[in-house]
C-alpha cells in the first residue's frame, strides 16, 4: 500500500514537472538578433496568477514593442521555478541582447545568472528580487513593499492615532516578501499610536481567504469590537467587505478598511465608500524596465535599485482617476 502511494506521488510529481515544463516553453524561436538596431529582449514572467500580473505583463509587452525598437521573446513559467530557469537558459542560447526576469523565487539563480554574465548578456530584474550577489545582475525595478505598508500605516496613524482603535490584519501568503514587508512598514508607522492590533491571520491574498478570515474575526469580536481592517491586498479587502456586510455592518463606516494594490475592483469599492484608503502597488513597470535595458546596453551607469512610483488614494481622489486607470 505504502509503496503504491509513494509511486503515485512520484508519478504525480514527475508528470506535473513535464506538464508545466511543456506549457512554459512556448518561445517564439526566430533566431537571429542584432538586425537593424532592433534590441532582442527575453522576458521570463512568473505566470498569470493575478490581475496585477496580467497588468504587469501587458505593460511589459507594450514597452518592449516593435514600435519602440524591441523584439520581445516572452515566456510565462506558470509559477514553476525550474521552468523559469530553463526559459532564461533558452534566452541565453538564443543569444538575446538582454534578459528581463520577474523571479518566482529568490533562491537558486546563481548558476544561470553566471551563465548570462559569461555570455555577456545583461540581466534586469523586475518586480521581485533574487538572493544572488548583486554583481550578477545589472539592475532591479519594482515596488517598495515596506514603503507601501508605511504609507497605509501613516494614513491609519493620521486618521485614528489619538483614539483607541481596534485593528485586525488580513495578511498575505505567509512568508512572501510583500506580506512580510507590508506588515513591517505598517507596524512601524502605527507604533506609538493608540491603534491596537487585536488579531492577524493569513488570507492567502485571495478574496475567499479574506472573507473567511474576516468572518471568523467578526464572530470572535463582533462588528462593534473591530474598528479598522488592514488588508495586505485589495482582493482580501473585497472579501472582507462581503463578510462585514453579511454580519450586518457597513464596510467603510462601522469598520474602516485600508488596503494595498489599487486594482480596478478595489478602486471601485473605494469610490463606492466601502474601502477608505488604498496604497497603489504599481504593476506598470514596463517603461522603466525598457529604459533600464536601453541604458545598460549603451553602457550608461544605472542605479541598482529603481522603485516604481506608488501613489495612494482617498475616496475622493479615487473617484477622479478611476476611469482613466489602465488596469
Amino acid at each position: 500500500m505504502l509503496k503504491k502511494v509513494l509511486t503515485g506521488v512520484a508519478m504525480l510529481g514527475s508528470l506535473a514537472l513535464v506538464a508545466t515544463g511543456c506549457g512554459g516553453s512556448s518561445d517564439s524561436g526566430d533566431g537571429s538578433s542584432d538586425s537593424g538596431g532592433v534590441i532582442k529582449v527575453g522576458f521570463a514572467q512568473t505566470g498569470s496568477e493575478s490581475g496585477w500580473r496580467s497588468a504587469n505583463t501587458e505593460s511589459m509587452k507594450e514597452a518592449f514593442s516593435k514600435e519602440n525598437g524591441f523584439d520581445l521573446v516572452f515566456n510565462a513559467a506558470d509559477n514553476d521555478p525550474a521552468a523559469q530557469i530553463a526559459a532564461v537558459r533558452s534566452f541565453i542560447n538564443q543569444g538575446v541582447d538582454a534578459i528581463v526576469i520577474a523571479p518566482i523565487v529568490e533562491d537558486g539563480w546563481d548558476d544561470v545568472l553566471n551563465e548570462a554574465k559569461e555570455a555577456d548578456i545583461p540581466v534586469i530584474l523586475e518586480d521581485r528580487t533574487v538572493s544572488s550577489s548583486d554583481d550578477l545582475y545589472a539592475a532591479w525595478v519594482g515596488d517598495d513593499f515596506t514603503k507601501e505598508g508605511e504609507t497605509a500605516g501613516q494614513w491609519a496613524a493620521d486618521t485614528f492615532g489619538d483614539t483607541a482603535t481596534k485593528l485586525v490584519v488580513l495578511e498575505g501568503t505567509t512568508g512572501s516578501a510583500p506580506a512580510n514587508d507590508r506588515a513591517t512598514g505598517f507596524d512601524s508607522a502605527i507604533e506609538g499610536t493608540k491603534i491596537e492590533k487585536i488579531d492577524s491571520q493569513t488570507g492567502e491574498f485571495t478574496r475567499d481567504g479574506g472573507k473567511k478570515v474576516m468572518e471568523g474575526f467578526l464572530q470572535k469580536y463582533g462588528v462593534d469590537g473591530i474598528d479598522l481592517v488592514f488588508a495586505h491586498n485589495d482582493d482580501m479587502a473585497l472579501g472582507a467587505i462581503e463578510a462585514i456586510e453579511a454580519a450586518g455592518g457597513t464596510p467603510g463606516e462601522d469598520i474602516k478598511i485600508v488596503s494595498i494594490d489599487a486594482v480596478h475592483d478595489g478602486m471601485q469599492a473605494l469610490v463606492d465608500g466601502k474601502i477608505n484608503f488604498i496604497v497603489e502597488c504599481n504593476p506598470l513597470l514596463g517603461d522603466q524596465a525598457a529604459e533600464l535595458v536601453k541604458s545598460v546596453l549603451n553602457d550608461e551607469s544605472v542605479d541598482k535599485q529603481t522603485f516604481a512610483v506608488d501613489q495612494s488614494f482617498t475616496q475622493d481622489q479615487a473617484a477622479k482617476v478611476l476611469d482613466s486607470r489602465p488596469y
Partner: peptide, 13 residues
C-alpha cells in the same frame, strides 16, 4: 464558491 465572493478566481477557486 464564486457566489460567495461574487467573483471567478480561477487561480484560487
Amino acid at each position: 464558491y464564486s457566489s460567495n465572493i461574487m467573483a471567478a478566481d480561477a487561480n484560487a477557486a
